[in-house]
Write a protein that binds this DNA or RNA. Sequence first.
DNA 1: CATCCGTGGCG
DNA 2: TCGCCAAGGAT
Length: 291
Amino acid sequence: MNENPYRTTVLAWYERNARDLPWRTESATPWSILVSEIMLQQTPVVRVLPAWEAWMRRWPTAADLAAEPSGEAVRMWNRLGYPRRALNLHACATAIVERHGGNVPETHAELLALPGVGVYTSAAVASFAFGQRHAILDTNVRRVLARLETGIEYPPKAPAKAEFALAESLLPEEPAVAARWGVAVMELGALVCTARSPACGSCPVIADCAWVLAGKPPHDGPPRRGQTYAGTDRQVRGKLLAVLREAPGPVDKSALDVVWEDSVQRERALDALISDGLVDPLDSGEYALPG
DNA sequence: CATCCGTGGCG
DNA sequence: TCGCCAAGGAT
């Protein structure tokens, strides 16, 4: 019923070409895999690699991280970006200790209930850490399926129902094989079927590719999102948080005021950081990473 | 459903 | 140079 013609080919390609990433090794744990998935949310593998190594060395288990103040997680996060993920990871650790006896939960629903864990991450951990059968629909898989099956260069901005149905229909029955299939397609998207300049010449399933067959028609429709950064609140938040990360302890307000000219925007960004729990305004008038 | 949320590298 | 993109999630 879900016998796709290129499954074996993709799996064989993965066997030969998969990168040996540390969170894919035998010594990886459900917790270390969860950490990798959170870090990899919108952050390239090359930048996650050293951060993950350092993080796992310092906090090998969820309990180790839960025992620390959340601010230490934010500091350790360094410049990975989207620092709320550091807070999420710390909250995950706490929830795992309090609700699951220190072990990462195994069901998709329990994983989904963890902070910062959405549909993708939940499926990824259930699949990669516990060998379960779940459709993996990340940006790589979406792009591969858009080309291979739908014949378009890029998938729509937001995942559509049809995409889940398609991913579901291609999923091998055997859980262990399904888990393998998931990483394999992701890897194909990451290494060959890339966004910019796909290496169709070295693609193992080029003969099955609807997009190639159609003559590689360029993206048709609204231009792909261009997220500006310079001058935004996000840039200001980044500068403010960097000051706190690099300081050994609490800092005076004056140390924060120098990072951005526009005081209105600066105060708005600081308030937002405090509201998000990334910054702690002390009674002394100083500011610090959360305790 | 659109927008917000960091950071850095590459074509 | 600068827009685009990178294993998304929450609101």
